[in-house]
Simulated assay, not measured.
Amino acid sequence: MTDGTSSRQDQILKLLLDSRQGLSLDEIAAALNISRNAVKQHIVGLENSDLIKKDAFKITGGRPSRNYVLTEKGINRFPKQYAWFCNLILAELKAEMGEEAFRRYMARLGAKFAETLMPQFNGREPAERITALIETMQTLGYHAIEDQNNSLPTIQAFNCVYHDLAQQYPELCEFDRALISALLDRPIEQIRCMACNDCSCQFLIKHK
């Protein structure tokens, strides 16, 4: 967890994670056995990175002291384990629904997600939709580009955002296909898939 922070700043973040009600400069200094001024310097860096923020004043019998707490960005710096939970849900869904119904369900999810993004695509020409799709996929983490080396326009994605899950549940690819097709308002064909050990996922954009 040292990306962009020093080891001392990491220690401060961990202290605040364990003390969600917040800690004062003096409390942090005492916990780390460093000076109050040293803590203040680290606090400034963490505030500038939007990892912590000032909270309410703390009344301790003496003068009020300002508490510091983690921001949402600070909380999200700590590891999260979502994969096992997603795997549990997907396994139950597939077992209860059956393979074909599960496949259709993932396609519906992709189409529904596309509806939330559609205002960015409505009224655009086909080429503009492709550009907007690339930007959207980049935001979602797909690391996508338009590959113009084929007879038909092709979207190429170099990162599968749920690669391990897709290897176990290839039906997840229906989500991508439905999403891309809906946003482009064109039929598409997936000709490469990283979950099948290809180097990228590739989607041919067909004519209407």
Rank of each mutant, 00 (worst) to 15 (best):
G62E: 01
S6C: 07
N37R: 15
Q81D: 14
T136H: 05
P126T: 12
M137N: 05
A95Q: 08
L93S: 03
A83G: 01
S65D: 15
L165H: 09
E100W: 04
R177W: 03
A91K: 10
D3N: 12
Q120G: 10
D185G: 07
F175E: 03
S7V: 12
C193Y: 00
G123V: 06
H42A: 09
R124F: 06
C173N: 03
L183D: 01
F203V: 02
E171C: 00
G62K: 15
C199P: 07
N37M: 09
Y162W: 13
I155M: 07
P79Q: 01
D10K: 11
E171T: 01
A30T: 15
K40D: 11
D3T: 12
E125P: 05
P153W: 00
H42V: 04
I59E: 13
T116N: 07
E135L: 09
N150P: 02
K73I: 04
L152M: 11
N122D: 13
Y162A: 09
D26S: 15
M194H: 03
S35Q: 05
L172P: 01
A83C: 00
E115F: 06
T154I: 02
D176Y: 05
A132I: 12
A95N: 12
E27K: 14
E135H: 13
L140W: 07
D176I: 00
D10A: 05
D176W: 00
I191Q: 01
S35Y: 08
L51R: 02
R77C: 14
N149G: 15
E27R: 11
A31C: 08
A38C: 09
K53N: 08
N87Q: 13
E27W: 11
D18N: 14
A195W: 02
C196A: 15
V69D: 00
P187M: 03
P170D: 02
G98P: 04
Q81R: 10
T5C: 00
F57I: 11
T154R: 15
T2R: 15
K53M: 09
I43K: 07
